[in-house]
Design a binder for these strands. Structure first.
Lengths: 231, 231
DNA sequence: TAAATAAAATGATTCATGTCATTATTGGTA
DNA sequence: TACCAATAATGACATGAATCATTTTATTTA
């Protein structure tokens, strides 16, 4: 992995659900007997920070954001697309509330797995537990990177990060429909809405990106990367 | 745990080494046969970000800081005192380098446990693995809190955090020897040295704390807490 | 004890970014 | 089509905190 985890403030985890391959047929069956699949509309809250974590959330469709909040402010920790597990830090009994909130960015659906069943399996299947450790570790390292970027980069770099991330990891194309509003981009990049507007304009004026309606196209990828890297 | 993890930007983990209670006599013996104990002087580097992680570090004495860095900047992720494990995110093979550096704040010593032995035990002892998951989860949640505070609080609040944390968690007294320089405090609180100096002066002028040489005493605990909480 | 070095303190200045106020544009819907 | 609400855009201004330059104090070393 090297040190490049420090270069991007945008944390999208890659698919994690291959961990279920490590379960026995009986374990898999037990999980399937103890889950419900639920759909969420864009804007709906999937889990609320501080509420009792009765299940592990396995995102099967859509895009969500994971964030912490207090009575007046919000910090987005990461965005996740399908194939990811949510709620692992609540696995252990002494901390059985969600440490963050989860909100659907797009129409999404998720399998909710009974946390006691999940916990029981983790406690008995060391290979599976080892895989969970992998996932938690990877998440932690990604978070280090986002934290570092938020602290050390300034706004141009952070916004460049987000654009590159959406392009590279979520939509997997240099041209994509930007479903997020300026306000949502602002929350993701940790800055004010006005700053996003100003910087986006500057990126357009300087020929780094173009915008037709909601379609964003990255024109000068190299320069955008440079801005991302050098703050 | 509720939501109070969001209130303090200072992350010191509590003792983690009780995880070894979950090992069998043979496993414990295998660990003991595959560790070395090493001493470090104040200022020495215990592990270097990006270097191959050949061992899990079990801190047995002292105080260290965990931080990420690039060629020009540094971000302290947490400080740890004796009883803590360091290097868990490097456990899994695909990521076998340290994702952070470790530096001794005070004279310290550590047991270095062969990572392959540690990994083997995790893979075979689900109870132990579950405990490791607990530790990783607790670390992650603490990091969320620090990240949130760094983003949302301003300098007075962050420095108040650090003072309260040193007092409450490290030295466990309202009066303690501040072994850290202003520069080190600045790195911990994520601000410039001059800002720390100015704010410390203000805290003294307003009767929140007093300083005699290196001895710091918290005088108005309630107000300092209020400053910590309200940014 | 003096000299040298490091740490702490202080003031002036700069800068990035947030906030506020206002206007323009867009998209949905009555 | 016209209206309303949400979003985007723009400019003026405020402000928290970094940077830089300099001085004072403390600590180490010769």
């Amino acid at each position: 992995m090297g040190n490049n985890f420090l270069h991007n403030s945008c944390t999208v985890s890659l698919t994690q659900t291959q961990c279920f391959d490590l379960l026995s047929a009986e374990e898999m069956q037990e999980i399937e007997e103890n889950l419900v699949e639920v759909s969420y509309k864009k804007g709906e809250t999937i889990a609320k920070q501080g509420s009792f974590a009765a299940y592990i959330i396995c995102l099967s469709k859509g895009l969500v954001r994971i964030y912490v909040e207090n009575f007046k402010e919000t910090l987005i920790l990461k965005i996740l697309s399908s194939g990811n597990l949510i709620g692992l830090p609540s696995l252990f009994e002494e901390n059985n509330v969600f440490p963050y909130s989860v909100l659907a960015y797009e129409d999404s659906s998720a399998k909710l797995i009974d946390i006691n069943v999940f916990r029981k399996i983790v406690k008995n299947n060391a290979k599976f537990a080892y895989k969970i450790i992998e996932i938690l570790s990877a998440n932690t390292i990604q978070l280090y990177g986002r934290f570092f970027c938020f602290e050390k980069k300034q706004s141009y770099g952070r916004l460049a990060d987000i654009i590159l991330c959406l392009s590279g990891y979520i939509y997997k194309s240099k041209k994509f429909e930007l479903l997020l509003s300026r306000k949502e981009l602002a929350e993701l990049a940790g800055m004010s809405t006005e700053s996003v507007i100003r910087i986006m304009k500057k990126f357009k004026d300087e020929g780094l990106i173009s915008e037709n309606g909601k379609t964003v196209k990255i024109i000068n990828y190299d320069l955008l990367s440079k801005i991302s890297q050098h703050g």
